[in-house]
């Protein structure tokens, strides 16, 4: 695997798959509107080669005003439909503003879909503010810091999540910021599960 690391970003060139195309399409709309977002969870492992697929891609988005959300809704509806509701006010007032995710899929499909949430917790804000730029075949995406991703996946604890964590750890262990990694490992009380990664 050839990955280019620089101070501000990671570059990866590969043969794109269905999930990559979905993510690139969706995120290009957010980029166009200068909306800050970060992709978290399974896709972060999958984009770096994990041998599995996923039915959804989790994306955390900065809190938007209803005006900005309407603007986003307007451009998303050229390619995507929201699976929860067809009304943007309903989507804003009864879903994202109430900590409930919206799901956006390409027309006439249900999976895979983009699971869209506003940031809520202190951890959400941290991951958004410390997002990592990934240049995937010249497309700009933002993903979670790998150190947090590994520890968080480990803390979720299902077999699939631990496998995702191990995949990322083994792939990036020489590049991890040890202080950040150890901080999250400790905060998420995962020190005793660290041996699962090795």
């Amino acid at each position: 695997m050839e990955i280019k690391f620089s101070k501000d970003n990671i570059e990866l060139e590969k043969e794109l798959n269905y999930l990559d195309h979905l993510v690139i399409k969706f995120c290009s709309n957010l980029n166009k509107l200068n909306i800050k977002y970060v992709i978290v969870s399974g896709y972060v492992s999958i984009v770096f080669g994990r041998s599995r697929s996923s039915e959804d891609i989790d994306i955390l988005v900065e809190k938007l005003s209803i005006k900005k959300f309407k603007e986003l809704w307007g451009i998303l509806k050229n390619e995507f439909e929201c699976l929860n509701t067809i009304d943007f006010e309903d989507a804003f007032n009864n879903y994202v503003s109430k900590k409930t995710a919206l799901r956006f899929a390409l027309f006439n499909t249900a999976i895979p879909n983009m699971e869209f949430k506003f940031v809520q917790t202190e951890l959400d804000f941290w991951v958004l503010n410390n997002r990592l730029k990934l240049i995937l075949n010249k497309n700009e995406l933002y993903i979670s810091q790998i150190e947090l991703q590994i520890c968080f996946k480990l803390s979720l604890g299902s077999n699939k999540d631990i496998e995702d964590a191990k995949h990322l750890y083994l792939l990036f262990k020489d590049k991890l910021n040890k202080e950040t990694f150890l901080y999250f490992l400790k905060q998420l009380k995962q020190e005793k599960n660290f041996n699962l990664l090795k």
Partner: peptide
């Protein structure tokens, strides 16, 4: 996973991603 990550590390992107795509593009989730 240990075996597979070792394989990924020494395999060109074009090859591993083409193999991975066989899983993902069939939508067998």
């Amino acid at each position: 996973i240990e075996f597979y990550v070792n394989y990924l590390k020494k395999t060109p992107n074009k090859k591993w991603s083409s193999e991975q795509n066989k899983i993902i593009n069939t939508k067998n989730i």
